[in-house]
């Protein structure tokens, strides 16, 4: 226990002034994102990360050094994962009769998302370490990062793939709902949450609060569910 606390303390105290890069980059990202009318391709991460990497290259700062220096943020990620329970608990209280459909949809959707990625990934003969960094792509980033770390994948890769999944998800969602005539906003929200996590949930809230609420449920439950099955699934799959 003491050892665990010391470990976390060291992570926090490893932080240095390099944190400034992340904060400035994030501020620039948020500014441009709001200016663009919250366009998905102007997501704060898409804007800020190239700027920060350019700054690191220009000042000849080692990436590993920069990552360590951001220890506070990496530590807060754990706290943020715990905090996801708050919106989820508020949405879960609101429904009762829809439980069977929600659970079947989330259980199979989460499994399908991970399994299809593993199958297609190995079919395209992607290296194991990259496949390990792909499996958690449909899950919200904080959970995806923890899972990828445990699988032995690269967390630098999973953050990008999760972001990309979210963007692809919200681009293809509406045409798919139209093509298969799924007009109920509740189920559209759930699907957005399961397949496109936080980015899908933002999109769902733009449609209606109800759609967003279902998306929150889809994202939260799929995060929990994927955390339970993903590691055994990848081990059984053994790419």
């Amino acid at each position: 226990m003491i050892e665990l606390i010391m470990q976390q303390w060291q992570q926090i105290t490893a932080s240095s002034w390099l944190v400034v890069f992340s904060v400035l980059g994030f501020s620039a990202g948020i500014f441009i994102y709001r200016r663009s009318g919250k366009h998905p391709l102007c997501h704060p991460l898409i804007i800020s990360t190239p700027l920060i990497s350019l700054a690191l290259y220009a000042l000849d700062i080692d990436y590993g050094h920069y990552y360590q220096a951001n220890g506070v943020f990496n530590w807060l990620l754990g706290a943020a994962t715990v905090a996801l329970a708050v919106p989820l608990s508020q949405q879960l209280k609101k429904l009762s009769v829809l439980w069977p459909t929600i659970s079947i949809a989330v259980l199979s959707g989460g499994l399908f998302a991970a399994f299809s990625a593993l199958i297609i990934g190995s079919w395209l003969s992607i290296e194991p370490i990259a496949i390990f960094s792909l499996a958690a792509k449909s899950v919200t980033t904080p959970i995806a990062m923890i899972l990828t770390e445990q699988l032995g994948g690269l967390i630098t890769l999973i953050t990008v793939l999760v972001l990309f999944t979210g963007i692809i998800g919200i681009i293809v969602a509406q045409p798919i709902f139209n093509a298969f005539s799924l007009h109920d906003e509740r189920w559209q929200g759930l699907i957005l949450g399961v397949t496109a996590h936080a980015i899908g949930t933002l999109k769902a809230f733009e449609k209606s609060p109800r759609c967003g609420a279902f998306s929150t449920i889809g994202m939260g439950l799929n995060g929990i569910w994927t955390a339970l099955f993903l590691i055994p699934l990848v081990e059984a799959f053994g790419p």
Binding site: S22, V23, G25, F26, G29, H43, P44, L45, S48, T49, P50, I52, S53, L56, Y63, Y66, Y67, N70, F73, N74, L76, L77, A80, T141, P142, M145, L154, I155, T156, L157, I158, T159, V160, L163, A198
Partner: peptide
């Protein structure tokens, strides 16, 4: 402000 916490890992995509 969750996105801020992803930045350090996300920047790593340019250093693969």
């Amino acid at each position: 402000n969750l996105s801020l916490l992803f930045i350090p890992a996300c920047v790593g995509a340019f250093f693969l």
